[in-house]
Amino acid sequence: MKTVTVGQGLPELIVPITASAIVAGAIATNDYEDVHHDKAAAQATGVPDIFMNILTSNGFVQRYVSDWCGPDARIAAVDIRLGAPNFVGDTMRITGEVSRVEGDEVDVRVSGRNAIGEHVAATVTLHWGARA
């Protein structure tokens, strides 16, 4: 396990929210709700465009932490609060910080913000070094 301390920051990740990114995520997560791929259907619900589905937001959060912790850490849990939608044309800036270290258990607090506000606030719990 590499040296991890509370307060340690993770490098930021910029995710351009294109229609392609939203649709690729929706299909990769088996989510065929029309608001994630059909602009007219999304607009009929009163929003300006298609927007990212939750499973993709979760995917980006865990990929972000995985980029940092590498293959030796296990993702044990994720706790996500959802906020401002990720609409086409926006950019999500993901930042993170270690918020708890107890033995080989580490919490990383992750925030993904777009032009509207905070899209996702998450805590990812990692188990480090306990090889299954």
């Binding site: 690729a24 990769a28 293959p71």
Partner: peptide, 12 residues
Amino acid sequence: RWCEAMGETNPI
């Protein structure tokens, strides 16, 4: 397909 959509490169 999921890894490509998320940009995930963890080899496991």
